[in-house]
Design a binder for these strands. Structure first.
Length: 462
RNA sequence: GGUCGGAUGGCCGAGAGGCGAGGCUCAGGACUGCAAAUCCUGCUACACGGGUUCAAAUCCCGUUCCGACCUCCA
C-alpha cells in the first residue's frame, strides 16, 4: 500500500504513525456490548467504525486478531432479569443474540473471538490473586476485592484527570474501601444473585475486570489497539489500565474511541425508547444503507441522527449501487475490487472516511461518463475501484451477506417484467406513446421503475 | 468545581496557516418521444470580539452558546 497508516491515540491526543508490536500482525480488543437491552444505532456505530478499521488493516496486509467481548454479567442484567421475570442468563443470551443479528444485518464481520465475561472467571481470579499478592489490591474480608488507587504510580492518564478532582461517589461506603475512589474488582454475592467461588468469597466480577482478563487471555500482556465508545474512557478504560499495569502488563499501545450518535445534539440514552433500535430503523432502510449512513461520518465526530439524513444517505448509496449494477450489465460480470489510490491515502489519515467518500464521488462521476460513452475499459476501472472502496466500508452490494436473500425470486420476476417491457417496446416502435406510457405507469404502481438507456430498457424495484 | 469536545453555506458533512473537499437540495443547460438515469454550469460558508502574520475557518487571548465524562454507558 506504500503510505503509512496514522491513527489518533486517545492516550497521547495526537495522530501518529501506526507501528504494530509484531511486524505484519495487529491485535485489537474492542469493548463490546453489555447485553442488557436490544442494540440501538449508537451501539452498532461503534461496531461499524471498528469493523472499518479492521477491514482496512486486513486490506493493508496485516494479519488481524480482533477480539470483541460480551459482558454477560452485570448489575443491569440482573435488574432486567428481575423485571422481565427471566433467569439472568436468559436475559443475557437474548440480547446477545439481538446484537449478533444486528451486526450481521449491518455486515459487521464476526470477531476472531467473542469471549463472554462469565466464561473467564478463572482468568479473573488469577488476575486478582496476582494483584493481591503484589499489594495492588485488597480483600477486606466481606467477599469484595478492591483495587487501591492511591498506590498506583499513575492513574487517569487517558482522561487526564487528577484523582483529587474526581467527585466522590455519593454512595461511597467506607466500611470496606480504604478510599472512596477504590473500585471493585469483585463484588461479594448478595442473596439470590449469581455467584462464583473465589479464595475471598463467592461473588461476581466488577465491571472492569473482565476486559483486563480477557484481553490478556487472547492478546497477551501487550497488544496494539484497544477500542470502545467515548464514554468508556473513564472509568472503564482507566480502570482496565490500572488493573493491567498493576499486574505488570504493558496492555494497550493505542487507544481509540468512537464518538456518539446524537439526537438533538445530545447523546442517545438507553431511556430513549425503541425508535432508534436497529430493528426499527431496518424497517425503513436496508442494512447496507444504514451501514453506509453510520459509517459515513468520521469515527471521532458526533453523528447527529435524523431520518432526513438517513434517507439522504440511502439515496446517495443507491446512486452508487445503480452505477455498479449498470456497469455489471455492460461488462457481463461483476468487477473485481481494487483500492483506489486516493481512497487509500484518505483511509491512512486516521480513517478519514469523509475524504474517502469524496474520492468515491469523483470515480463515480467518471464511471457514469464512461458508461454513457460505452467506454468498457473506463467503466471496468471505475466499477472495480468503487467496489474495492465499498468493500472496505463494508458496503459492497455484491457481498453475499447482502444479496443471498434476494436471489431466488429474481428469475421469475425478470421474466414477467420483460414481458411487459416487450409490449411497451412494441408500442414505442409504432410511436404509440400513450400505450407505452400506460404500461410504464401500470408497472410503476407495482414498484417497478423503468429507465430507457442507450443499451436498452432497464428495470429495478424502488 | 475538574477533564474533554464542538459551533462551517438552504441541509448534511470534511479540512486545521496560503491552491473554492465532497454529497444533497435548488436554478439553468445537454441528452431523451416523454420520463428516469447521467453529465455540464451556477450557488465562495467557517459563532462573536480582539490579536499574531505578507496571509487566519485554521494559531493566540477573551466572550457566547451547545454537548460529553467525573464510578450505569457504544
Amino acid at each position: 500500500m506504500g503510505a503509512q497508516l496514522k491513527l489518533y491515540n486517545t492516550a497521547t491526543r495526537v495522530v501518529t504513525d501506526f507501528k504494530p508490536l509484531q511486524p505484519g500482525k495487529v491485535g485489537i480488543y474492542l469493548c463490546g456490548a453489555t447485553v442488557q437491552a436490544p442494540p440501538h444505532i449508537g451501539h452498532v456505530r461503534s461496531g461499524i467504525n471498528f469493523d472499518i478499521l479492521r477491514r482496512w488493516l486486513v486490506a493493508s496486509g496485516y494479519e488481524v486478531t480482533f477480539i470483541r467481548n460480551v459482558t454477560d454479567i452485570e448489575d443491569k442484567i440482573l435488574h432486567k432479569a428481575a423485571h422481565e421475570n427471566l433467569p439472568w442468563w436468559a436475559v443475557a443470551q437474548k440480547y446477545e443474540r439481538a446484537f449478533t443479528e444486528a451486526y450481521a444485518a449491518l455486515n459487521v464481520l464476526p470477531p476472531t473471538c467473542e469471549p463472554r465475561a462469565t466464561g473467564h472467571i478463572t482468568q479473573m481470579i488469577e488476575l486478582m490473586q496476582l494483584l493481591i499478592d503484589n499489594g495492588s489490591a485488597y480483600a477486606p474480608g466481606n467477599g469484595d476485592v478492591y483495587l487501591e488507587v492511591r498506590k498506583l504510580n499513575s492513574y487517569l492518564t487517558l482522561s487526564n484527570q487528577k484523582l483529587d478532582d474526581l467527585q466522590p461517589a455519593e454512595d461511597a461506603d467506607l466500611t470496606y474501601k480504604k478510599d472512596p475512589r477504590d473500585f471493585a474488582l469483585w463484588k461479594a454475592a448478595k442473596p439470590g444473585d449469581p455467584s462464583w467461588p473465589t479464595p475471598w468469597g463467592a461473588g461476581r466480577p466488577g465491571w472492569h475486570l473482565e476486559c483486563s482478563a480477557m484481553a490478556h487471555a487472547y492478546l497477551g500482556e501487550s497488544f496494539d489497539i484497544h477500542g470502545g465508545g467515548l464514554d468508556l474512557i473513564f472509568p472503564h478504560h482507566e480502570n482496565e489500565i490500572a488493573q493491567s499495569v498493576s499486574a505488570g502488563w504493558g496492555f494497550a499501545n493505542i487507544w481509540m474511541h468512537n464518538a456518539w450518535v446524537t439526537t438533538s445534539g445530545e447523546k442517545m440514552s438507553k431511556s430513549l425508547g425503541n425508535s432508534l433500535q436497529v430493528t426499527e430503523i431496518l424497517k425503513q432502510v436496508r442494512g447496507i444503507e444504514l451501514r453506509w449512513y453510520l459509517g459515513s461520518a468520521h469515527y471521532r465526530s458526533m453523528l447527529e441522527f435524523s431520518f432526513e439524513a438517513l434517507e439522504e444517505a440511502a439515496v446517495n448509496f443507491r446512486r452508487i449501487e445503480g452505477f455498479l449494477k449498470r456497469a455489471t450489465d455492460l461488462l457481463g460480470s461483476t468487477p473485481d475490487g481494487i483500492i483506489p489510490p486516493g481512497f487509500a491515502e484518505a483511509m491512512n489519515e486516521d480513517l478519514a472516511v469523509p475524504a474517502a467518500l469524496a474520492v468515491i464521488a469523483e470515480i463515480l462521476r467518471n464511471g457514469n461518463t464512461a458508461l454513457s460513452a460505452n467506454d468498457k475499459a473506463g467503466v471496468r476501472t471505475a466499477a472495480s475501484q468503487i467496489r474495492g472502496a465499498l468493500t472496505i466500508l463494508g458496503c459492497d452490494p455484491f457481498d453475499s451477506n447482502f444479496t443471498s436473500a434476494e436471489k431466488s425470486d429474481e428469475k421469475v420476476l425478470d421474466g414477467l417484467v420483460s414481458l411487459a417491457l416487450e409490449q411497451r417496446a412494441a408500442a414505442r416502435a409504432r410511436k404509440d406513446f400513450a400505450a407505452a406510457d400506460e404500461i410504464r405507469d401500470q408497472i410503476a404502481v407495482l414498484g417497478v421503475v423503468i429507465e430507457d438507456t442507450a443499451q436498452g430498457t432497464r428495470w429495478s424495484i424502488g
